[in-house]
Amino acid sequence: MRSIIDIKELSVEEIDELVAVGKDIIANPAAYAHKCEGKKLATLFFEPSTRTRLSFEAAMYELGGHVLTMADAQSSSASKGESVADTAKVISCYADIIAMRHPKEGAPMVAAMNASIPVINAGDGGHNHPTQTLADLLTISREKGRFDHMTVGFCGDLRFGRTVHSLISAMSRYPGVRFLLISPEELKVPSYVKQEIKAHALSYQQTTDLVSAMPELDILYMTRVQKERFFNEEDYLRLKDSYILTPEKLASAKPDLCIMHPLPRVNEISVAVDDDPRACYFKQVLNGKYMRMALILKLLGIR
């Protein structure tokens, strides 16, 4: 019995295998429509995240399984003082697998240590969100056909964006990957993330200028620059437009650039970009569902 709390728990081979299953599901959905018959997924969301929850639930339904949901978990068991450990033990009596989101870092790990069924971390505060990274990886694989030898640009809030940190960590394991880290000074990648890149003998460059970085990129991963992250409003107003993606800024981009975003977006990608064939962020959402299906199958030991 195995759980997935952190993307780093999956080896490069296991990621390849999950991506292969994801692609096979896309090619032969009917072959998977009954794989999880009689199985139940419990979605325990102690923090609202309707999109992620619906993605897990859609994944389980498409595998022919059932879903038990504790949609407003934060108002039920936790408020009655039940510990995460006890909740995990109780849900283990009803379901075959758990997807858990929790505002506190490490809560899904505590659940995994106490449950007798697999636990998938569906996001623990600003810490880990492995299925988002799996969605990102399937998108890269489908759009680029590979994970190695490419220039990946990350733009926006690289300091607090956990999806950025996880994807850098996952991509650091492939040869010839170069990172272009595009952000305001205030929101640069933390040093431990840079150390991880260096530990794999890969290179990175930091810049504040999206437009000048654009021609080099094979992938552009956008994130939102939030006003709350700045000390004063002037800095925010001065900088915010530099990190909004528009058709004009894409003028010098490669024709096969892949534009990604973990969604939801506010205004960091202008709606005018949506019709560009290089926009992949809605495909990412769909890929997320396929990877959750692949992960559920793997953790339940179903082939």
């Binding site: 510990s83 450990a85 506190k104 809560a107 790990m109 505060g125």
Partner: peptide, 13 residues
């Protein structure tokens, strides 16, 4: 000492 850590809300851990 991380205020966002699960150990801050679950004292028995």
């Amino acid at each position: 000492r991380n205020p966002r850590c699960i150990t801050t809300t679950e004292q028995e851990l």
